[in-house]
């Protein structure tokens, strides 16, 4: 019921949503993270995502397990993160969860993406017309 992946090809969002379908789930909640054209006012050309794969997969699974502990009614959880070079509009991450009722699906989905951003060993570098920056590296 937990499905985790880290891939260097485009994420098939529709196929990802199908992985959390469940006859007992009246709610499917999805977060889709996409590449934005600006960062702190600077036009972004592309992003490069780098991962410490084994730890990222391990930590992603832990985050999903923590969500199931906190919301035991969770039927299915899928988290797919992309790595490599991404351009404006590309999907970088999909979190999908299913639950019997909607309230818990919103809460669990938000918990997973928020915690992913804090602990999962993935790094992104933003490339602009005139330079590049590792996001969040410096205060």
């Amino acid at each position: 019921m937990i499905h985790i992946d880290l891939i260097d090809q485009p994420i098939d969002v529709a196929a990802t949503l199908r992985t959390v379908e469940d006859d007992g789930a009246g709610a499917i909640n999805t977060f889709i993270g996409a590449v934005r054209n600006k960062s702190t006012g600077r036009p972004v050309v592309r992003l490069e995502y780098e991962a410490y794969d084994s730890m990222a997969l391990h930590q992603l699974r832990k985050v999903a397990e923590q969500a199931v502990e906190q919301w035991p009614m969770l039927k299915k959880v899928t988290v797919i993160h992309r790595k490599g070079t991404l351009y404006i509009g590309d999907v970088a991450v999909v979190v999908a969860v299913s639950t019997p009722h909607r309230a818990e699906s919103f809460a669990a989905c938000q918990y997973i993406i928020d915690t992913l951003k804090q602990v999962v060993t993935i790094w992104k570098k933003e490339f602009y017309e005139d330079g590049d920056v590792w996001v969040a590296a410096h205060p």
Partner: peptide, 24 residues
Amino acid sequence: EYAEDDTTLSERDEIALIPPVSGG
């Protein structure tokens, strides 16, 4: 796993330096 400051290291450990993460 993230290690505490007082964790002791051994040659068999897989060790990595983790700068601020920025996935998502």
